[in-house]
Nucleic acid binder design. Structure first.
Lengths: 149, 149
DNA sequence: CACGAAAATGAGAATGAGTCTCAGAATCAT
DNA sequence: ATGATTCTGAGACTCATTCTCATTTTCGTG
């Protein structure tokens, strides 16, 4: 059996989760899902709106935001606050691996990284501090590889 | 010699740093500084604007944002992005100690915490990943002590 | 297949934090 | 006291995001 691409795996997973949640199909939602499936990097809602318009299928802003919120609520997409009131959205792996981001202050790019030591420090925080939390954002602001002088 | 309060120490430090930077005095700026000195918890720009108006000294929004940016640039105040495009501002200790925040998703409160293991993991990130960064935000979203069920 | 209740959609108005402009007021070295 | 420079603030503006509500689509059921 040929191995299927990560995009297809993710799309199937999304449709399964949303189907189990009792949601109906809809054109706008599927368009956003398909776009996120094809894009590896994090998109903003505005970029999604523009991409769909350019692709020839203008889609209402409200539907885009609704879909993104729905996907975030179901853990299918991660919302990354990159500052200045702008959010970017990126599909998550069904396996639940986790990574963080560096926002380059020079070129604006978003660089994902993964660090077991950091992850361990965060995971063990609840017991050390006695707090409970569902989500955590770690955003570094600095220079990406290309913008190092 | 009587020990002076943290607020006074901070205010003196701010005025010294700004004086060395060759800035002149100004009423609006001093009002924002005094308010931040008296408030231990993180304030948003809107809260500062409201507090000054209620205190009987309405202050222009532009001056408030200018002052906050100035203080952040000089490392005297920390900008905390609590999500939804809202920033909160909190004075830093001159000694440069560092802490992070938990945003309570139930009551909206901001709880500061301090954790050496997490701090170490972050501090050692640049050499492990080969990136350079100036700032980092760690924001947890969950339940504060009071909102635990 | 047709019906209709419930869900999805989208155009555009509304919101709200933050930014910008620019004319007038305040500061301070001389 | 002077005047170059800095500070201030009213309000217009930006722009991502949210809201409204009338219309369209979906899909289980008769």
């Amino acid at each position: 059996m040929a191995s299927r691409s990560a995009a297809v795996v993710w799309t199937d997973h999304v449709n399964e989760v949303l189907g189990q949640a009792g949601l109906r199909h809809g054109g706008a939602r599927q368009r956003v899902i398909d776009l996120l499936a094809d894009e590896a990097c994090a998109l903003s809602a505005v970029e999604i709106e523009d991409a769909l318009r350019v692709h020839g299928t203008p889609t209402g802003r409200a539907s885009i935001y609704r879909t993104l919120e729905l996907l975030v609520d179901h853990g299918l997409v991660e919302r990354i606050m990159v500052g200045q009131g702008l959010a970017r959205f990126e599909r998550t792996h069904p396996e639940g691996d986790h990574h963080h981001h560096l926002v380059c202050e020079y070129c604006g790019r978003l660089v994902a990284f993964d660090d077991p030591e950091l992850e361990h420090a965060i995971d063990s925080l609840p017991e050390r501090l006695g707090v409970r939390f569902e989500h955590h954002d770690v955003v570094l602001r600095g220079a990406c590889y290309d913008c190092e002088e």
